[in-house]
Design a protein around this nucleic acid. Sequence first.
DNA 1: CCGTCGTTTGAAATCGATTTCGCGTGACAT
DNA 2: ATGTCACGCGAAATCGATTTCAAACGACGG
Lengths: 377, 377
Amino acid sequence: MGTGVARADNGGTIGHSTDRGADSPRLDEGLRERSVATIYDVAREAGVSPATVSRVFNGGRVTAERAATVRAAAAVLGFAPNRVARSLRMQRASVIGLIIPDIGNPFFTALARGVEDAAQETNLSVVLCNTDEDVGKEQRYLEVAAAEQMAGVIVAAASRHRTDLSALVDRGTPVVAVDRRPRGASVDAVMMDNRHGGEEATEHLLARGYRRVACIAGPEGASTSDERLAGYRAVLRDHLGDTGQPIEPPPEYVVHGDFRVDGGRAAMERLLALPEPPDAVFVANNLMTVGALAALREAGHEPPGTGLLSFGDVPWPELVTPSLSSVQLPSYELGFAAAQLLQERIAGTAKPLQTVVLRTSLQVRESTSGPAANRGG
Amino acid sequence: MGTGVARADNGGTIGHSTDRGADSPRLDEGLRERSVATIYDVAREAGVSPATVSRVFNGGRVTAERAATVRAAAAVLGFAPNRVARSLRMQRASVIGLIIPDIGNPFFTALARGVEDAAQETNLSVVLCNTDEDVGKEQRYLEVAAAEQMAGVIVAAASRHRTDLSALVDRGTPVVAVDRRPRGASVDAVMMDNRHGGEEATEHLLARGYRRVACIAGPEGASTSDERLAGYRAVLRDHLGDTGQPIEPPPEYVVHGDFRVDGGRAAMERLLALPEPPDAVFVANNLMTVGALAALREAGHEPPGTGLLSFGDVPWPELVTPSLSSVQLPSYELGFAAAQLLQERIAGTAKPLQTVVLRTSLQVRESTSGPAANRGG
DNA sequence: CCGTCGTTTGAAATCGATTTCGCGTGACAT
DNA sequence: ATGTCACGCGAAATCGATTTCAAACGACGG
């Protein structure tokens, strides 16, 4: 450690032997540039004070001429402001956190894209944290977000009851709940109209002529699932069957799954094993639909012989034949709206807390032609 | 520092009117706890110096008794160290960045899980950045990683030629390339044996009795694709057909796609339109397989009548019937290994640069029974 | 009893950017 | 000509944690 390594004590420069080629910037003794230039280096190079350099990069009032000098100096040194120092001083980082429970679910990745696109407008970077529906992991990420002084956080909570946003809310960090709102948390929220979606779905199946409509719901107690289920129940209750009597589905027609593929498969198997199996099923989320579809096929039933309507498009719908109608979720839009709302808060809006609700929409695909299509066989 | 609002000027506490209920912590005048406690607050509460508090939390030498006092004080105040200040002082954050080109591709999400699991061991948090294969976006994230002083970065580069890791390498930030190695970057890498995978795939198709084996490759110039293609070509060159002559596939049997669903569909359509269409296709990535499968179905060809072998499992294989054999990729393991390697570097290993290569493995699923299954028709 | 050594502790410097405060300058009105 | 005002700029404080340096302290051997 002769000439090269400054500060051999702290771990600042790791013993990372990058073999810079001959074309890398020379490290002259006289004009030795540090591995990363600071605002002080730029100030010295430009012959101004650090304060002025800061102002140049933050829209402070500086004469055009001097600003040009500073920019030139910065360019020469390859200066980029140290975001950590900046965050410390500002008490706020220029990063927003997005915490989602399942990075493998296209619903959340689409949502993430919406967040990213909206965030781009304010130069905020998005960092994504995947909790795997694990409340412990989620809690750690929430604490990291607080300790990193993130400018704001968008969270699709792993649990309605056990997710604890207080670390952030106490700091005054803006938080927007998306898709799921943790109970009792006083934060903005962007949700979708789950009940309406459940109604749409069930109505569609009835309109197509199915009569024994079952539902594979999510975990009991999950608000999103409960609302979808409520929509399903409401429609069936109001619907008069061919006899003019309300259709009252037997209680076995409602089966709870875990929002995952295997749960959907198991649920469908249970439905198929009933003495009088349903002729159509409303599945309360996309992944369970994958499982349900697999179970149906194994049993030799294919849509549309048995109707299947998914809340949320099946991942890679290209893979599914015949293509299924589904309740389209505004996943991208949820993310976009959440990020916009968050940025309003970050900018300092004092509006009262908001809850934005976006509508689902039914996407009908031709091949869902109703039970008749298979009745001959 | 008066009694009331200190620093009303800076934007530290945003005007965020969370309506705390009556059960929120009271803000007494005497025992007024700031929205977030610092090391100084803890020090005062415990009657020690800030240095001691720091030592307690970082394994410094402190008498057990005093340490207990400090911990108690910290607990009372709900103290959590400010990671930004810590990062500034340490010149390194306790966060590693993971930069991937397509968050919607299960290959990368599995990889991300591997990274997360490995990182858990050292208490490093993982932040995930999605570049959407956009070199500009990627560049911004790389700069953010440098400016945020992330402890290290794992990157699956969007482009082999245009991805520029110098911002990080110059700082001395450890970088590990995964899946794709940017040209000329002197960094560690964790790759998979693409060529071997291509060979395995092609051999399998030949062994199953297919004779006109085509290949849907990735973008020309992408090293991963080129290697897979090379494996395909090598096997065909060495293979002696029924006549004892080498099988030389016509040049039209190699079609380039863009690694996305639609590219796979288009490529397959082109193959099917040939005067003598192939009887089997090796598809160089999972998403293109989705498109290829869709095109096959539309044309009325289903595997195994036309053989289809994917490099990398199709997303949600449950959806695909009959299930396809495929080249299994060590996606999780790639991420895990990359994170381990990165952590070694962060810890300061001076080993020369490494490239770890993981093998693919062929997963044979029974239903890929060869062309015979369909020959009668 | 005193010098030496090792341990524990606190004061203060430090990381790099932002921002307040006050000074100097020039324009303008009186 | 002088007071007023706005503006540009630099010095210095600040954000919160880590770490060095030296002081204080206790134990122990001579």
